[in-house]
Simulated assay, not measured.
Amino acid sequence: MEKSTVYFTDFRCPVGTSQLDKLKKLCVAAGIKDIDMDGKFVAIKMHFGELGNMAFLRPNYARVVADLCKEQGGMPFLTDCNTLYPGSRKNALEHLDCANLNGFNTITTGCQIIIGDGVRGTDEVEVPVVNGEYCKTALIGHAIMDADIFISLSHFKGHEATGFGGALKNIGMGCGSRAGKMQQHASGKPAIHEDVCRGCRRCAKECGSDAITYVNKKAVIDYDKCKGCGRCIGACSYDAVYNPNSSANELLDRKMAEYAQAVCHGRPHFHIALVQDISPNCDCHGENDAPILPDIGMFASFDPVALDQACADACLKATPIANSQLGEHLAEPGWHCHHDHFKDSNPNIEWKATLDQAEKIGLGIREYDLKIIK
């Protein structure tokens, strides 16, 4: 099979140029202008960052991509789906407030922002997974599937559950509706923090399975009726409903790859990853620990699998930063070194399964040629 091409540029900027100039040049070299965008909706999927986190991509980068789309006659919008866990992005109103507070708005990005799965995280489309082994269909945010063209703009960093968060995680987990996220997280079912529950009955009203009743003014879930859709999580304003089944294992990685296939299949797609501020954990955290590796550069490709592989390879070749989670682990007496920066940072992960499954089902290939753009 022919190798995919991945384009790369570092963060060095001579006087008179900027990283934004380099990002535009990278995207053009990688072929973004080969996509027919004239009069078409373009979904640009990215992460707006949790409140308190400072490692997420700046909105300036999104502006570069949006402007390129508009130059080609496209109608771009930035998008992400609501979160499964409690936080500042669990419904569309809070999500948009969070995005705005983190600097994402129509002025800074040059385009609209649409939360892909609607107000409560329930506006979804059931999409077939071509060659799917673990998920025959995927529940994807409706607005994302309405787009004619899909672009992922990812912050490549470490991740406590999947080893790293790159294009495939940004697409697969990020585009899943709340029920889609539940399906990926081992098809778990929600639970109740009784000490937080106020007995307001909002979760019961939202439940489509009549699975929630109340005992002593506290919500109780009938698991024989519960379908694990997660709608109750979005309904609760007090974070009393949560998902206890999140698992950092190979099954999660493989389901996530299959969800990415569902999002990309059958329409033009293009992928960009910035490997900088490489925090050990996801931007979904309300904080970010010190980076585990130095900033590396920007990557772009039509193949998200090759893109993630190239980013991972570059990280594995980098020198760990001593004053970081990774550096401290490696310095511990008797530490069993995995010779894998992601696994030495978060030992319980199996990141290679994501790339393996994505390649197996035909989303892309892991072998690539790297072209350097100055």
Rank of each mutant, 00 (worst) to 15 (best):
V305D: 07
H329V: 03
E160S: 14
N82E: 04
G121H: 05
P190V: 10
M54V: 14
A312Y: 12
D253A: 15
K371M: 13
R58V: 09
D67I: 03
G118F: 08
C175W: 02
R198I: 15
G188K: 05
A314N: 10
R198F: 14
I115E: 04
N170L: 06
N346F: 07
G297L: 05
Y7T: 08
C226L: 00
N53I: 02
D97T: 14
I372P: 10
R366I: 06
P320Q: 06
G172T: 00
E367Y: 12
T109Y: 03
V196C: 10
V275Q: 11
E258F: 05
A99W: 05
H285L: 15
C232E: 06
A262F: 07
I151S: 03
G116C: 10
K3M: 13
A147L: 02
R366C: 12
H155K: 02
F302L: 10
V65M: 02
E258R: 08
P304C: 12
Q276A: 15
G174P: 06
G74Q: 09
I373C: 13
V42H: 06
V15G: 11
D36H: 13
I296W: 05
S154E: 02
G228E: 08
G230N: 02
G49N: 04
E367Q: 14
S345F: 10
K225D: 07
P244D: 07
V275S: 14
D340C: 13
N216C: 06
R198Y: 11
K90G: 00
I233N: 02
C232H: 05
A314K: 10
P128H: 05
R89F: 05
A262L: 08
Q325K: 15
I151Y: 04
S301C: 03
A29K: 11
D34Q: 13
H341D: 11
D340Q: 12
A257N: 01
T106L: 13
T137S: 13
N60P: 00
I212D: 00
R366F: 10
S18Y: 02
N53C: 10
Y7I: 08
D21S: 07
Q72W: 03
A353K: 13
R231Q: 15
C98E: 09
K218W: 01
F156I: 00
E287L: 13
C135N: 14
A62W: 00
C284M: 09
K181I: 03
C27R: 02
G118K: 11
H47K: 01
A353Q: 11
L251Q: 12
A240N: 01
G73E: 08
G334A: 12
S345V: 09
K157D: 01
C27F: 01
I171N: 01
N105V: 07
D21R: 01
N53R: 08
Q184E: 07
L101A: 15
G163P: 07
G39I: 03
D224T: 12
G39C: 05
E258D: 07
A138M: 07
I349C: 13
P347E: 11
G166A: 04
H193C: 00
S18A: 06
P59T: 06
K3V: 11
T354P: 00
E124Q: 12
Q183M: 13
K45A: 01
A358C: 10
I292K: 04
